[in-house]
């Protein structure tokens, strides 16, 4: 089962997203601050990061930057899920290296599919020899 690292500080949303992703066939690990998310990603065994932007300590953009700097975590696809829904905020998230951007409130029935799509795109990128790096351009 693919492992999703959920970086989110709202307890209700953590409970919900964890429940929905487990139901839809994912293993879920959680981090409630940006720093925790970066550390969890470095420990490995993370297939994808579902990342909130407004995180304590280190925000989502900072997490993206930290993960891209590190060769260990550079290839992990990042999907941003944020309540910041203005066009310029979405653009900033994608520029920071996210492969897709889901705005809150999200569609619970589609979340699993969106994550599988991001995983498939990342795998295709790796198969082309891009080691996932190109996905972040």
């Amino acid at each position: 089962m693919p492992v999703v690292l959920l970086a989110e500080d709202e307890p209700d949303i953590v409970r919900l997203v964890t429940y929905i992703l487990r139901r839809d066939g994912f293993l879920v690990r959680t981090a409630t601050t940006g720093q925790e998310a970066v550390e969890a990603a470095r420990q490995g065994e993370v297939d994808l990061i579902l990342l909130d932007i407004m995180l304590p300590e280190l925000n989502g953009y900072g997490v993206c930057a930290a993960l891209r700097e590190d060769p260990l975590t550079r290839g992990i696809p990042i999907v941003v899920m944020s309540a910041r829904a203005q066009a310029k905020e979405v653009a900033r998230g994608l520029a920071a290296g996210a492969v897709s951007y889901i705005t809150k409130p999200f569609e619970p029935a589609q979340l699993g599919e969106q994550i599988r799509a991001a995983l498939a795109a990342a795998a295709a990128g790796r198969a082309q020899g891009g080691a996932g790096e190109d996905l972040h351009r």
Partner: peptide, 9 residues
């Protein structure tokens, strides 16, 4: 949007 996310979810 944040509480609506929880309600909708």
């Amino acid at each position: 949007r944040t509480p609506l996310t929880s309600i909708k979810g």
